[in-house]
């Protein structure tokens, strides 16, 4: 039992959780504050993951230059998606982002791209430069039921540092006059235009900044693991949306807590079910079905939450009354 609990609790601070939280903060800026429907946050994450890992493996760049390449690629992606769509109704961005994410995933996973992107197998072993910066002495660090290596601790610390940095950045931005214009655009872009603001430019800025958050999330996501093209499908985007809505779309802290709850719940239900199957208390499931069932259970839990607390955990209920 301690192990199951320990597992679930460890998901509160895993680098993966941090990555999802950061990607969700990005769409909080897009959707929650600017009203942009980005259904392709996966593509910004993929740009981060591939931009970084290809730079290291294929071009032999060091850690920081590789991060720089990912950042430039992310900005280019935002312009590519934004230029044709941001003058149009918000639905167009939604369609284009979702399509771009799928196109990107197909391209990187084709076998002809294998020498660069690793094709269907993806890429691994590009993190030496990152771990070389680890100041924590080599060894095993044991707390309660956990046993971390120095590199695990480093990845956790760096991930949450990056999340904190962007969360604070966004909190400052949305409280500034810039944030006021952004929120105005969410409410009615023509009104904001009539007050002399270049709405198109602000939407582009929001797309770039939120996309960059997705890109850094993509890098955090792959640093401790490997790059798998299959990870960047629409499900990734929808998990991030789930996290966003769970925490409350127009909040910053909501994305972080949302990611923690999402991953702990997933781990907890999975572990409880498979223990049940193992010791015979659950007879109607096989071990293989547990993986699918836990997503269904999480889905039900989220539905309940959305029904009984539609504004998300940290959202302001007033906002919903008025929108209705």
């Amino acid at each position: 039992m301690d192990l199951i609990l320990g597992n679930a609790i460890s998901w509160l601070f895993q680098p993966i959780t941090a990555a999802y939280a950061l990607a969700a903060i990005g769409i909080a800026l897009h959707f929650g504050f600017t009203g942009l429907l980005n259904f392709g946050q996966a593509v910004f994450m993929a740009v981060g993951a591939y931009g970084f890992s290809i730079s290291v493996k294929f071009f032999g760049l060091g850690f920081w230059p590789a991060v720089g390449v990912a950042v430039i690629a992310s900005i280019a992606m935002a312009f590519l998606l934004g230029i044709p769509t941001l003058r149009l109704r918000s639905d167009y961005l939604a369609i284009v982002t979702i399509a771009a994410a799928e196109v990107f995933r197909f391209i990187v996973s084709t076998t002809s791209a294998q020498p660069v992107t690793g094709g269907p197998q993806g890429l691994n072993q590009y993190s030496e430069g990152f771990y070389a910066m680890n100041p924590i002495p080599v060894g095993h660090y044991k707390f309660w039921v956990w046993d971390f290596k120095q590199d695990d601790l480093f990845a956790i610390a760096v991930s949450w540092l990056v999340v904190t940095f962007f969360a604070v950045l966004l909190a400052i931005l949305i409280r500034s006059p810039w944030g006021r214009v952004i929120k105005g655009i969410r409410e009615d872009e023509d009104a904001v235009r009539s007050l002399g603001k270049n709405v198109y430019s602000y939407k582009m800025q929001s797309l770039v900044v939120g996309g960059l958050m997705g890109t850094f999330a993509g890098i955090l996501f792959v640093l401790p693991t490997s790059v798998q093209p299959g990870n960047y499908g629409t499900t990734l985007t929808f998990y991030i949306w789930t996290i966003l809505l769970l925490g409350g779309a127009s909040t910053v802290i909501g994305s972080i807590v949302g990611a923690m709850i999402f991953w702990s719940l997933l781990s907890l239900t999975g572990d409880l079910l498979s223990t049940g199957v193992d010791n015979g208390t659950i007879t109607f499931l096989t071990q293989n079905q547990v993986g699918a069932i836990r997503f269904m259970l999480v889905g039900v839990a989220l539905m309940l939450l959305v029904i009984f607390r539609p504004q998300g955990i940290f959202g302001n209920k007033k906002e919903l009354y008025f929108n209705a």
Binding site: R180, D188, F322
Partner: peptide
């Protein structure tokens, strides 16, 4: 101004003005 009013609903009256 617009015939069909465009108030920015989910921001405060003061923030509307500052905009």
């Amino acid at each position: 101004t617009f015939q069909l009013t465009k108030s920015l609903n989910m921001i405060t009256v003061m923030e509307n003005m500052r905009l």
